[in-house]
Simulated assay, not measured.
Amino acid sequence: MIGPILQFEDLQQLCKPGESPRLSTVEAWARRCGIRYQYDGKGGIWTTATALDAALGVNRAAANSDSYPTDLF
């Protein structure tokens, strides 16, 4: 994790702790959980702590809105 950014390796650990799941597995997990993500330049995905909080329902304003604040990504 770099500041509020969760890198692909962080998402792999959240998806399947103790394993190294493939990109397709992590992407499917993120979609299922409603986590908004972007692709990185190394063949993985990344997200922010704010986006993860929104998917978990911690930040209801972002989770229930069609528009997202600029600090979400």
Results as ranks from 00 to 15, higher is better:
57 G>T: 11
61 A>S: 12
15 C>F: 00
5 I>G: 07
47 T>P: 10
23 L>H: 07
64 N>G: 05
40 D>N: 15
72 L>K: 00
14 L>Y: 08
6 L>D: 00
50 T>D: 10
21 P>D: 02
18 G>N: 01
55 A>T: 13
72 L>F: 08
35 I>W: 08
7 Q>K: 15
40 D>F: 05
7 Q>A: 14
31 R>F: 14
12 Q>H: 02
65 S>E: 08
23 L>C: 01
15 C>P: 02
40 D>Q: 12
36 R>S: 05
7 Q>Y: 07
53 D>N: 04
41 G>W: 05
47 T>V: 08
37 Y>S: 10
65 S>F: 02
52 L>M: 14
26 V>A: 05
28 A>T: 13
60 R>L: 09
48 T>Y: 05
63 A>H: 10
6 L>I: 04
23 L>S: 03
38 Q>I: 05
42 K>G: 01
30 A>R: 07
37 Y>M: 11
45 I>Q: 15
25 T>C: 00
36 R>D: 08
64 N>F: 08
20 S>D: 11
54 A>Y: 02
36 R>W: 03
20 S>Q: 14
64 N>C: 08
31 R>V: 15
29 W>E: 03
48 T>F: 04
71 D>R: 00
73 F>H: 11
57 G>S: 13
13 Q>T: 02
18 G>T: 01
7 Q>G: 09
73 F>Y: 14
56 L>T: 09
44 G>F: 04
28 A>G: 10
7 Q>D: 12
13 Q>R: 10
6 L>Y: 12
24 S>A: 08
63 A>L: 07
73 F>K: 06
37 Y>C: 10
10 D>T: 11
66 D>V: 11
3 G>M: 09
20 S>K: 15
63 A>F: 04
4 P>M: 06
13 Q>C: 01
66 D>C: 06
23 L>D: 02
73 F>C: 08
36 R>A: 06
68 Y>R: 02
60 R>E: 10
29 W>Y: 07
5 I>W: 13
55 A>G: 13
26 V>K: 06
57 G>W: 11
29 W>N: 03
68 Y>I: 07
11 L>V: 04
45 I>Y: 13
39 Y>A: 09
54 A>P: 03
11 L>N: 07
55 A>K: 13
40 D>R: 14
5 I>C: 07
21 P>Q: 03
55 A>S: 15
2 I>S: 15
58 V>R: 04
67 S>I: 13
21 P>C: 01
35 I>E: 06
69 P>V: 14
23 L>Q: 06
51 A>K: 05
10 D>R: 08
53 D>H: 01
30 A>K: 07
16 K>V: 02
66 D>G: 12
72 L>G: 01
36 R>V: 01
68 Y>A: 07
24 S>W: 02
15 C>N: 01
10 D>E: 09
27 E>Q: 13
14 L>C: 03
24 S>R: 09
54 A>D: 05
38 Q>T: 09
31 R>W: 12
71 D>A: 06
33 C>D: 10
53 D>E: 13
70 T>I: 14
18 G>D: 01
33 C>N: 14
13 Q>I: 01
43 G>C: 05
11 L>A: 07
7 Q>M: 13
55 A>V: 12
35 I>P: 07
38 Q>H: 10
9 E>H: 10
66 D>L: 13
17 P>D: 00
69 P>H: 10
67 S>P: 00
33 C>V: 11
14 L>E: 07
27 E>K: 12
25 T>R: 04
60 R>A: 11
45 I>K: 15
52 L>Q: 05
61 A>L: 11
47 T>D: 09
